[in-house]
Design a protein around this nucleic acid. Structure first.
Lengths: 221, 221
DNA sequence: AGGTTTCTCCCTGTTTACAGGGAGACGTAA
DNA sequence: TTACGTCTCCCTGTAAACAGGGAGAAACCT
C-alpha cells in the first residue's frame, strides 16, 4: 500500500461529511481531496480535469442534483468514476437502480463508520462492496429468482419511468388533479390520464396516494 | 467556563454521531458522555438515574421511538431535560410541534457543524437557540400574525387530529379507498367520508395525495 | 344543566379517478 | 426496413372522491 487512495465526498449534510472525514483520517492509506454539498457542485468538480478521485462517496438525497442524476451524468459523459453510495435507505429498488447506474458499492449510514474504510479500499481495488444490510436486502430480492450470471443483475427489476411520467408524478405529489396537470404540461387531459395509468401499472400501486408514497420513498420529491 | 458541559447524542445514523463527536471534540468546554441509536435506547439511558446530561442532541427520525416520542416521554415523566433538535427538516409544523413539546433549540443538519457548539453552550446556559434557516422559517410563519408574548407560541398552529381521524389517515396512506376503510373500521362509508372531509379541512390540502404527503412529512407514517 | 368534542350516519350533487381498450406520429436502434 | 419505445389523443364505462349541508348519541368538562 504505497499509493494513497484519493476520495471525494458528496453529501448535503456537512455534519455527515465531517463524520466521514473523521473516520477516514484514522487510516493512512486514504485521503480526502475535497467534498461537495450538492450534486451540481459535485459534477462541476469532476468537470475540472485537474480534479480526480479514485473513489467518490455519494449521497442520494441532495438538492440541485441528486445522487441518481450524478450517476447519470457520469454515464452520459462516459466518465469512468468509481462510486460508493452512502444512503439512509436500503430499499431494494433504490439499491438496484444505483447498481444499474454503475455504482461499485453501497453502504448505509447506519453502519457506515465501521465499514467505510474497507469499502473504499475494496472499490479502489476494483472490487464491489456492499454493507451487510444491503447484502441481505439484495439476497432477499434474489430468493426465488434465478441467480444472475456475474453477481448482480444488470437490469432494472422495476420498470423505469420515462421523463414525462416523472413530470406527471411530481405534479401529482403537488396535489394537482388531471385537468390541472394537463394545463401545466400543455397536453390534453387524455394524455395525462394515459401517463397516470401507466404509472399505476409500472409502480404497481392502486391509486394516486400509492404514487405519492412511491415518490416520497424513492426521493423523487 | 470552569464547569464542563455534558452532552448526550441520539441519532440513528452512527456516522452523524461520529460527525458531532468530531466537531464537539474541538471544544474543551463540552464533553460527550454517551450516545443512543434509537429513541428507546435514549429513554432507557435517561431512565438510569446515574445518567445525566446537560444537553441532549436529538434526531427526529429514528426507529423504535422517534424524537417526538422521546420529548413526550420527558414531559410525561416530568424530566426537565434540555433538548436540541438536530433535524434534516425545517418544516414549520415540525419545528412548532417540537417547540410545543419543550425543546430548547432546533438546528438543521445542513449547517450543524458551524453552530452546534454555540447551540450547546446557549442551551446549557438556559437560552434558546435556533439556526438561521429555522429562524427564518419561524419568522415567516409569524409574519402577518400577532407576535406572541414570550418569544414563541405555546400552541399548535395546526388543528389537532382526533384518534379516529388519524386511523383513517393511516389507512389512506396504505392506499385503501373509502369502502375498504369503512370495512376495516367497521363503520359506514358515510362516516369515513365525513372523516376524510374533516381531514381535508383541518390539514388544508386538496385531496388524498395531500393527506398522504402530510402524513409522511409529519412522521405519522 | 349546558356547552363542547367526537363519532356516527344520511342527503344531494358534481367532478375526478380508475379500467380497458385502440391508435397515430416520431425517433432510434437492430 | 422492421421493431421498439415514447408521447400523444380518443372512446366507453364504472367507481370513487370531493363539496356542502344536516343531525343524533355518547362522553367529557365546567
Amino acid at each position: 500500500m504505497e499509493e494513497k487512495i484519493y476520495v471525494h465526498v458528496a453529501d448535503d449534510h456537512k455534519i455527515v461529511i465531517d463524520g466521514i472525514i473523521a473516520v477516514i483520517n484514522t487510516d493512512n492509506d486514504i485521503e480526502i481531496n475535497g467534498y461537495s454539498l450538492t450534486g451540481k457542485q459535485d459534477t462541476d468538480w469532476f468537470d475540472n480535469k485537474d480534479n480526480k478521485a479514485d473513489v467518490l462517496i455519494l449521497d442520494i438525497t441532495m438538492p440541485v442534483l441528486d445522487g441518481i442524476e450524478v450517476l447519470k451524468y457520469f454515464n452520459k459523459n462516459k466518465i469512468d468514476q468509481k462510486v460508493i453510495i452512502l444512503s439512509s435507505y436500503d430499499d431494494i429498488k433504490i439499491v438496484q437502480e444505483m447498481l444499474t447506474l454503475g455504482c461499485k458499492g453501497y453502504i448505509t449510514k447506519n453502519n457506515a463508520g465501521e465499514h467505510i474504510v474497507e469499502a473504499i479500499k475494496a472499490v479502489a481495488n476494483g472490487d464491489q462492496y456492499f454493507s451487510d444490510d444491503v447484502q441481505k436486502t439484495l439476497l432477499k430480492s434474489f430468493s426465488g429468482q434465478k441467480v444472475p450470471k456475474g453477481m448482480l443483475p444488470n437490469k432494472f427489476l422495476i420498470e423505469t419511468l420515462t421523463e414525462r411520467e416523472l413530470e406527471v408524478l411530481k405534479l401529482i405529489t403537488k396535489q394537482l388533479n388531471t385537468p390541472e396537470i394537463a394545463k401545466t404540461l400543455n397536453v390534453s387531459i387524455s394524455t395525462v390520464e394515459t401517463h397516470r395509468k401507466n404509472l399505476l401499472k409500472k409502480i404497481k400501486v392502486k391509486n394516486s396516494v400509492g404514487l405519492a408514497m412511491y415518490a416520497v420513498k424513492n426521493k423523487i420529491v
